[in-house]
Design a protein around this nucleic acid. Structure first.
Lengths: 218, 218
DNA sequence: CGGTTCCGAAACTGTTGCGTCTCGCAATAC
DNA sequence: GTATTGCGAGACGCAACAGTTTCGGAACCG
């Protein structure tokens, strides 16, 4: 995550055949200021969250980052590349898989982490912009798909383990469960503008798990 | 719904004190072509669905509607007003409340209607654009909130009835149920690009209802 | 030291798109 | 008939913005 240089035409990414003895093969001249990358991406994230993808301008990002436009264009090929990297930037999170032995607790932890991120960081504000851009731009679609997939994987594993140890029925539709849980969070973030707190998250997990447990007869 | 002239500065909306004997108080000159309103809004919906709010241009709408830009600006004050009305346009739907006597059937019908609309019309394609615009534009936020509220109300009533007749427990958190059901649909529409079909909708309703029924002990 | 690359600031160019206006014509009222 | 308003087409002015370049200076190399 946060691999800033994916799109940027950084000089290192160009022709250096990765010398093995020396980890850093320096070139003449003043080196790039690494802090500028961070400042630019932070500013870009802020701008994207505030005005959305439509009014996302390079000038505004440069002004907020306190750098010149040339400094941005030295690192990103175009406005679109910066926009893409901004969506990618820190949307990811080291997703923890507690593996407590109880699906309920595992899911409450994971979903709580997602909800907290959406509540306490700019991620929640940026999601609508990323989704709208993804609807129109295949590259952003890939970024969004990767984000969703990375978040689902550990939760998928947690449920899978529960099925394996008999805690949940064999015919459990894992994707459906994940759609329900994730759907609630994203719905409250993007449509209700009210990300769920920990209590709601716990209730939701309990409700959905109760719904797929065989005890309930219908 | 589809009250086109909400924002437009139509001459009728201006000073006519609504004569009571004559329903239509005509003015001199050629009357406006009512079909143009439809053509413009249809074209705008198409454009918005295809390119998103960022690249939504009046020129493109005029070209697709087969009319001049002046014809659009005679009806809407600005690009923003047109964008707003486009979000409003036909996003609404006569929401039916079957009231079959079974919450399960009521909810399957209503949620199925929503899912079908998102699958078979441009509504699904437009949702991300509307959500992104709503995140940034208070007026669009109001449009989106009204849309969501109008859709929730009958489902809320259906669950409410079920609680009243003892089909669901008294402490049922109706909003939570609606967030779960709606969340799944919107999640699959906007993030998974795969709106649920009728079978999935039925499964989801059954799962969520099973989750809140008291039979499941935990 | 000179050579090279980076830096922020800002000027500059070209394009895009909003909103207005003009044109020739059509459809209504009087 | 005349007056008035609408129509599509398109030109036009103007502002915003992408992307490039230039400038004086700074940070690294030898």
């Amino acid at each position: 995550m946060t691999d800033v240089e994916t799109i940027a035409d950084t000089p290192e990414a160009g022709g250096q055949p990765a010398g093995e003895d020396e980890p850093v093969l320096r070139r003449p001249g003043r080196p790039r200021d690494a802090r500028a990358d961070e400042a630019i991406l932070d500013a870009a994230l802020e701008v994207l969250a505030e005005v959305g993808p439509a009014r996302f301008t390079v000038d505004e990002v440069a002004a907020r980052a306190g750098c010149g436009k040339a400094t941005i264009y030295r690192r990103w090929r175009s406005r679109g590349a910066l926009l893409l990297d901004t969506g990618h930037h820190r949307l990811g999170l080291r997703v923890t898989d507690p593996d407590t032995g109880s699906v309920r607790d595992d899911l409450v932890t994971m979903l709580g982490e997602l909800a907290r991120k959406m509540r306490d960081t700019l991620a929640g504000k940026v999601m609508p912009a990323v989704v709208a851009e993804a609807a129109v731009n295949p590259e952003m679609r890939a970024v969004l798909a990767a984000f969703v997939h990375d978040r689902r994987k550990p939760a998928f594993n947690a449920i899978s383990r529960a099925v394996g140890r008999g805690e949940l029925p064999d015919d459990t539709d894992i994707d459906l469960v994940l759609d329900l849980l994730g759907g609630l969070v994203y719905f409250r973030v993007m449509l209700a503008d009210d990300p769920p707190d920990d209590a709601v998250v716990a209730t939701v997990v309990d409700t959905v798990l109760a719904g797929i447990r065989p005890t309930a007869g219908r």
